[in-house]
């Protein structure tokens, strides 16, 4: 299923607002809507374990990557390698496209595709990622808005990839984005954090109440 740029913008706005209201923001560092001219995109920043920046030295480190948020917080933000995920509307494919770039890598250069998986995808999930060809290949390209080199998940099969999750339903933009994140985002380590997923699921009914989440 396709989505127009206006619908995607609405969906991204909801994701951003819901994120800002979360108390538990452990999984992602920042979620921000960015704008240039009439193009709006969502930038999600995630810290990477410094050791995963150099996967060939400490290969076993990435297995604890997911639970290592406390350790990450102790290092200064400027020094940690960051993954920057941008969700941008494709005018050609009429679907969201995910661009991934990196900051503060020791080498200063983009990772190879093997290093990218090493850094972004927990090893427990990596086998299923071998089937990523089903979703579309991942290659380096030019970010359509910033112009910097970025990896992107090729969108030519995004519509098909979403079909099983949509089951023929018409969904609201925010739900579309959440399903898209679960399918395309997950293939490069951008999983919807549980508190956000919970919130998005409840959002329609009890958007005003934040009490329950704050108890968690």
């Amino acid at each position: 299923m396709s989505i127009s740029s206006q619908e995607l913008k609405e969906g991204l706005e909801v994701i951003e607002q819901e994120w800002q209201q979360l108390d538990d923001k452990a999984d992602w560092d920042a979620v921000k809507l960015l704008q240039q001219h009439d193009a709006t995109f969502l930038r999600i920043t995630r810290s990477l374990n410094a050791s995963t920046d150099n996967p060939y030295e400490q290969q076993d480190e990435d297995e604890i990557e997911e639970d290592d948020d406390e350790a990450l917080r102790r290092t200064k933000p400027a020094e940690r390698p960051l993954a920057i995920y941008d969700i941008v509307h494709s005018p050609s494919y009429q679907v969201p496209v995910l661009y991934v770039s990196f900051k503060n890598r020791a080498s200063g250069r983009p990772p190879s595709i093997e290093e990218l998986y090493q850094m972004l995808v927990p090893s427990t999930q990596r086998t299923s990622m071998q089937t990523v060809g089903q979703l579309g290949a991942i290659t380096l390209t030019e970010h359509p808005i910033t112009g910097i080199p970025a990896y992107f998940v090729h969108p030519c099969r995004t519509r098909e990839a979403l079909e099983p999750a949509l089951e023929g339903r018409t969904v609201k933009p925010a739900e579309y984005v959440a399903l898209w994140l679960g399918t395309i985002g997950a293939s490069v380590g951008l999983n919807v954090p549980l508190p956000l997923a919970t919130r998005l699921n409840r959002g329609r009914r009890i958007r005003k109440s934040t009490l329950e989440e704050s108890e968690q």
Binding site: L33, L34, Q35, Q36, H37, P91, S92, Q94, P144, I145, T146, G147, I148
Partner: peptide, 24 residues
Amino acid sequence: ASEDDTSTIPEETKPGHMRVVQSL
């Protein structure tokens, strides 16, 4: 031609940066 006060992108613009516009 594409100077834009509404831009909220933190990256500084590099020499030769182009705004690429596509539309169906």
